[in-house]
């Protein structure tokens, strides 16, 4: 049976993992390879590296980070952040990333989704969507540039559009839930999961163990992504998976 996936997300700035301070037993908690191997040992099904470098030099180091990670890690990983061109996509995939995730650039230049998916196959192209509920309009609105710029897109419509353009997976982050540790956004996750025929990764809001079973059972997510709860050791991948198994969720 196809297992639900647990995906830790690592923020990388200028080639170093940030938020890794709690890993006191690691020799170098800022080393992407060490953290990747740690999560692999813990039973992570996949990893996401999000490049949050502000400078182009910082971004260029990401290709080297990807290459080092790929030389050691034997599970799949996705790279996102600051990918603007087919050249960026090619460089990252050739360096050993399994997928790239496009966010703002996908909204601004939707043809990038198609170009990427034509070149390497749709399974390599993840469309990341940051969404926030808009009370006035009554829909979940898509934001870009790290949540700073609102767009006119309804998240469900954008997800459908992205898939029709060639995205092979949707990474949905709820801005309302992100950082709140109060549970994933189940309603939107389920609606998107029902609207597209590709896998949906839910992100934003992971706190307690039951949040994970909720997002799989009630939110119909195919994968759940979390950052802080894992980095700050509030829970571990191992613990989450043991809990899900007990709850009858298919888990590797």
């Amino acid at each position: 049976m196809l297992a639900k996936r647990i995906i830790p997300c690592l923020d990388v700035k200028d080639g170093r993992v940030v938020k890794g301070k709690q890993f006191i037993h690691l020799r170098d908690a800022g080393d992407p390879v060490e953290l990747a191997m740690f999560y692999n040992e813990e039973g992570a099904d996949e990893l996401v590296f999000l490049d949050i470098s502000a400078s182009s030099e910082g971004r260029n180091t990401m290709v080297n980070v990807v290459r080092s990670v790929a030389s050691q890690l034997n599970i799949p990983f996705t790279v996102g952040g600051g990918i603007h061109s087919l050249e960026n996509i090619k460089a990252l995939l050739r360096a050993g990333a399994d997928k790239v995730s496009l966010n703002s650039s996908a909204v601004k230049t939707p043809e990038l989704i198609t170009a990427g998916s034509d070149f390497f196959g749709r399974q390599c192209i993840v469309c990341a969507i940051d969404a926030k509920f808009d009370k006035d309009s009554g829909f979940y609105r898509v934001y870009i540039h790290g949540g700073q710029k609102r767009t006119e897109w309804d998240a469900i419509e954008w997800a459908k559009k992205a898939v029709s353009l060639g995205a092979g997976e949707i990474l949905l982050t709820s801005m309302d839930r992100d950082g709140e540790k109060n549970g994933f956004e189940l309603n939107l996750t389920r609606k998107i999961s029902e609207s597209v025929d590709v896998p949906v990764i839910a992100s934003g809001g992971a706190g307690k163990l039951s949040d994970f079973s909720d997002v799989f059972i009630r939110g119909e997510a195919d994968a759940a992504l979390a950052a802080s709860v894992f980095h700050y050791k509030e829970t571990s991948v191992k613990q989450v998976k043991a809990y899900l198994k007990q709850e009858g969720v298919a888990i590797r």
């Binding site: 196809l2 297992a3 099904d45 399974q123 896998p199 195919d222 590797r252």
Partner: peptide, 20 residues
Amino acid sequence: SGISPKTGERYKVPHMGWNT
């Protein structure tokens, strides 16, 4: 096909992830 031959329900394509 994207439609289960057993149940007639829709399923996702690609088959992506860890399977037994």
